[in-house]
Computed example of a mutant assay.
Amino acid sequence: MSDIAIHQLATAGTLSGSEILPVDDGTATLRTTVAAIRQGLAAAGHGHAMADVEGLQAALNAKVPLAAPVFTGAVTVPSGSAASTAVSPSGDRDTGLFFPATDTVALATGGAVRLSIANNGYIALAPADQRVRIIGSSNPNLDIENQAGADNEKLWRLNVNGGQFSIQTLTDAYNAAATAFQVARSGLSVTMVTVGGGIGNESLRVVVASGASRCITVTGSSGGDPAIGTSAGRLALGAVPVLPSYTVATLPTAAARGLIYVSDGSGGKRLAVSDGAGWRWPDGATVS
Rank of each mutant, 00 (worst) to 15 (best):
D25Y: 06
D103I: 04
V193H: 02
V183E: 02
S213L: 10
E202I: 06
S166P: 00
Q182G: 05
G229H: 04
N161K: 15
L155K: 15
A43T: 15
N175G: 03
A236M: 05
N152Q: 15
S274G: 02
A209R: 06
V273C: 07
T14W: 05
V34N: 00
T29F: 07
R133P: 03
A184K: 15
S116R: 04
T171I: 14
A239I: 06
Y261P: 04
G233C: 02
A124C: 04
P244V: 01
R133Y: 12
S16M: 08
D275Y: 00
G229A: 09
I4P: 03
L158W: 08
R270H: 05
N201H: 07
A44F: 13
Y122M: 11
A112D: 03
T194H: 04
V218L: 13
S137Y: 10
T247H: 07
A148F: 13
G187R: 01
A254W: 05
V34M: 09
G149R: 12
G149M: 06
A232R: 10
I260D: 06
Y174T: 15
A58P: 06
R270K: 05
T253I: 05
A35W: 13
H46V: 14
A42I: 10
I199N: 12
T219F: 04
G196R: 06
N175I: 08
G163Y: 10
Q147K: 13
I167E: 10
S210R: 03
T95P: 00
S90D: 14
T76E: 11
T247K: 08
M50F: 13
D25P: 00
I117W: 07
N161P: 00
R234T: 13
R114A: 05
I117G: 00
T219Y: 07
A285K: 11
G136W: 10
A178W: 14
N175A: 12
A148T: 14
L56G: 09
G162M: 07
G267Y: 01
S274P: 03
T247P: 07
I228R: 03
A177S: 15
L155T: 15
T247F: 05
S166H: 08
R234G: 06
I167M: 15
N141E: 14
V207L: 12
L66C: 09
T191K: 02
G40L: 14
T169G: 15
P226A: 08
A177P: 02
V193F: 10
V87S: 03
G73K: 15
P244D: 04
